[in-house]
Nucleic acid binder design. Structure first.
Lengths: 273, 273
DNA sequence: AATCAAGTTCCAAATAATGGAACTATACGA
DNA sequence: TCGTATAGTTCCATTATTTGGAACTTGATT
């Protein structure tokens, strides 16, 4: 018989080894943080692929920094330092700060959930959210990453990229069929991105989650060369495609307003090359 | 004349240099994350106290890991990786998961804001929060750290520590007088902690913020040797000390229930020495 | 008591970090 | 326009840390 959770963890995707000393440490940290329960030394050994001696030292350092906690039964869990660091970086995020009242405004107009997300590699990271009734909890999605190719904000953000950069991202994208509407290859996605560039807005037609639709518009963040976007999301039974189409114009308008205010308040950074 | 923000940053508290390679990297990360705006190389140089060459390399590594972003104008900002890591560690936090329905229950009983916090060194880190009307935003406090000596949960958690451990924490505490009710030295605090140990609950009598009171009770987290607590908080005009005293019993009861369920569901870890 | 698995420690070789100083690029002022 | 100050970057010999296989300790199980 094997250990309680070891059997299930055997074939899980290994966290790819980061380069450099810091990279390795963060990779190990991520391996522990992305696992669902406390991880024993052997679990992490399998997930991280590091040699025993090396891993042991890395873990001690992470514990020393309170990025991990070691329990009395020797298993490792995320420490509190991560939460504190994230709190500070989130609450001091100037772009989010600029966007917030606009998101509020859009929520009041539509009555549905409004998201703000930033593109990071092939994923969209949700940075803020406004909704009326907190179904689960308000913050439950902040920091969450979803694939870009099957979400409204993701596709909107992708539409901001130059063609070579876009193709590089799509080459690294794995097209997982979440629903029957999910894009299955780069070909159809590229065609849709053409449309998004023309229209200035993107739809998620139940591509990531069944019964969930949204309309989104892109925003480029000045100074950081970042691609972002906002969306209005709702359940399919309540939000028809006609409704979403009607919201497209205000969503574009709010996105434009955020972008404009961001340029003024955050500065465009030094110009191009 | 000096740089825009350099003058103000000169006398700011320097992030104390972490030990080891990872420690230094995280210390630099923290220096950037705790600053309020984008930090230029020279700003970080002053804040971190690292030599130029070393700092430059550390920053490149942090940018490589997407823990920091470098803007086009060369200044540094927190990257998205931190938020994603924190999201995962928060949403997978089993203790929070156990506590959540209990917090909800306590909120329904009192109608006021309920907090869950964990002691970390001399500070309380807020890990969860339940409130009805999101005045600012629900998640705005998650990950926030406040001094233990002047908050309800903080004092409750301190009361769980053994005397030598407690004295070590207090020795490192700086007693800042936030209001006229704030403890000014370890002496009065120690006396109050005696009472808290006896009563099983703690009050914050406008010690951290004026016009804000709370009643709290301690919980010890099994397996991790952590001290935690919950509290019910409200504005002084609405929540009298009599009201708080009346809530003390239910707060203790909910804390007990969380602790009990945590032992069952999370396991006590291997026993003491 | 013997066996096995999990976790920890050890240490010489390989690698990365260190940090002062020289260098380059950009902004500023005359 | 040309110097001059300031900010940011690169260099490299020295020093410290990391590396990782293997031996060792611990503690549970039979």
């Amino acid at each position: 018989m094997m250990t309680n959770e070891a059997t299930g963890a055997m074939d899980e995707s290994r966290t790819e080894a980061g380069t450099g000393t810091l990279g390795k440490a963060i990779a190990v940290l991520e391996a522990v943080v992305t696992a669902d329960g406390p991880q024993r030394f052997t679990d992490i050994l399998a997930r991280s692929g590091q040699p025993r001696g090396t891993l042991h030292r890395l873990l001690s350092h992470l514990v020393e920094e309170d990025l991990l906690i070691q329990r009395r039964d020797l298993s490792y869990e995320p420490g509190l330092r991560l939460l504190t660091l994230a709190y500070r970086s989130w609450s001091a995020n100037r772009f989010r700060d600029v966007a917030e009242p606009h998101l509020q405004r859009l929520h009041e107009l539509t009555g549905e959930t409004v998201h703000l997300g930033i593109l990071r590699e092939t994923e969209i990271v949700y940075v803020d959210k406004v909704e009326s009734r907190q179904t689960v909890r308000m913050s439950s999605q902040i920091g969450k990453a979803s694939p870009a190719y099957c979400t409204g904000i993701g596709k909107a953000a992708l539409s901001l990229l130059g063609q070579p950069q876009l193709e590089r991202v799509l080459a690294r994208t794995e097209f997982h069929a979440f629903t029957s509407h999910t894009h299955r290859s780069a070909a159809t996605l590229l065609a849709e991105i053409e449309e998004i560039r023309r229209d200035g807005h993107a739809f998620d037609r139940e591509e990531h989650e069944a019964e969930i639709r949204c309309v989104a518009a892109p925003i480029s963040i000045p100074g950081g060369e970042l691609a972002a976007g906002i969306s209005v999301t709702g359940p399919a039974y309540r939000v028809t495609m006609e409704q979403l189409s009607a919201w497209a114009a205000p969503v574009r308008e709010v996105a434009r307003a955020i972008g404009e205010e961001a340029v003024i308040r955050l500065g465009p950074g030094r110009g191009g090359p």
